[in-house]
Simulated scan of single mutants.
Amino acid sequence: MLKLHHLNKSRSKRIIWLLEELDIDYEIIAYQRDSETFLAPDELKQIHPLGKAPVIEDNGQVIAESGAITDYLITQYGKGKFAPSLDSKEYIEYQQWLHFAESSAILPLLLKMFVQKDGAKTQFLENYADSEAAKILAYFNSQLEGKRYLINDTLTGADFMMSFIVEIVKNAGLLSNFKNLVEYESQLQSHEKWHTANELEEKYD
């Protein structure tokens, strides 16, 4: 059975959502962050040297990185769902969103979180993070104009990946500044399994 190594309050939740939508048998192995450092426990290093989550084990393979996991699961178990066909022009756009979530999009948002958590005055970092985050979110918002989903007006791996970005923006109190993101979040919430993933995340928190 496929195993998902899940860390509370992490990127793992979107993988739970995807697994639920794929309707395959899987097991959640839950880990808790340190209450003081907020870091993952050392036990995760027994699964993958970086000691981060999510990580899945399937068919003798250990797979890390959310984008790679999403791509693997949809390819192996999607049965044609959740991704455009390889020979379509939409497939390149789809791949860009898979990578965008954990590259261009996440960095400035994490920097904003770290600056706020540290509380120290910065000479450069705070303004840089604010500027880059504004640019990224304006782009994301514009790409959703007139659309319910990112690709082909249907739920795909791009949406699973970008759902975590939406969650970060909402938790930061910024979501209401972006009309299309508000509508997009509402669309994601229309999926029953989205709520199932939230319930499971709360259960293992």
Rank of each mutant, 00 (worst) to 15 (best):
K135W: 08
Q96F: 06
K135A: 08
G146L: 09
F140N: 14
L109N: 04
Q61A: 13
D87W: 02
S85Q: 08
D87A: 07
D153P: 08
K45G: 12
M113G: 10
Q143N: 13
K135H: 05
F164C: 08
T122W: 07
S104Q: 08
V166L: 15
H48E: 11
D87Y: 07
L107P: 09
Y149T: 04
D159H: 10
P49A: 13
P108Y: 05
A64Q: 12
E90P: 09
G67M: 06
L98N: 01
A134H: 13
G119L: 04
S142P: 07
E126F: 09
Q116K: 15
K121T: 09
D71I: 06
A134C: 09
R148P: 01
I63A: 11
L137V: 15
D71A: 06
K52E: 08
Y72N: 06
K52P: 02
K112I: 14
T70M: 03
Y77M: 06
A68N: 09
F124L: 07
D58S: 12
K89Q: 10
L50Y: 13
L144P: 10
E65W: 07
H48Q: 14
F100T: 07
K117E: 08
G146S: 03
E102W: 02
M161F: 03
G80W: 00
Y94D: 05
I74S: 00
L110S: 07
A133C: 12
V55S: 09
A134F: 10
